[in-house]
Design a protein around this nucleic acid. Structure first.
Lengths: 64, 64
DNA sequence: GCGTCATGTCAAGCAGACTTTACATGACGC
DNA sequence: GCGTCATGTAAAGTCTGCTTGACATGACGC
């Protein structure tokens, strides 16, 4: 599952640690999501979407 | 996390088993999601949204 | 009464999401 | 050269998502 978290985070000038703190998850979790190691849970996806003020569908792309 | 899966499924006249087959998951998984035992994964949430032709945000409600 | 269908639920197991701790690297300023 | 910051990655542990198989119930038609 592709996503645009890294770009959106960059637009805000945040480090992975900054974003992790705002999402209340670990820095490794943010890194894993950005590098595509695994997908976030649905609740975390909602948090991410809310933080960036965009719909989930515009951030995450199921691709196939 | 509240959701409207049961109503949407009812609108289509599908049983839990019918929906499970269309989503390619087990009947127990559909039942668990409808009864709020746990939330679907992000990929499964995308599948559900696509099947009903609605955005994820209109089906799942993070509540808090 | 009996068979069937839809739903609910349980148990055991595997895979995925997330944690903490820790170490390695490259870029930067001093 | 040295400290610091951002990022990547790894191991081990916990909890959640999802599986199969099975059993119980209530509603329905015959």
């Amino acid at each position: 599952m592709n996503n645009h978290v890294r770009e959106l985070r960059g637009d805000q000038g945040w480090s992975q640690a900054d974003l992790a703190e705002r999402l209340d998850v670990s820095r490794q979790t943010v890194n894993a999501i950005e590098t595509g190691k695994y997908d976030p849970s649905l609740p975390l996806a909602f948090k991410i979407a809310a933080l960036f003020g965009r719909p989930i569908e515009s951030i995450f792309d199921p691709g196939a």
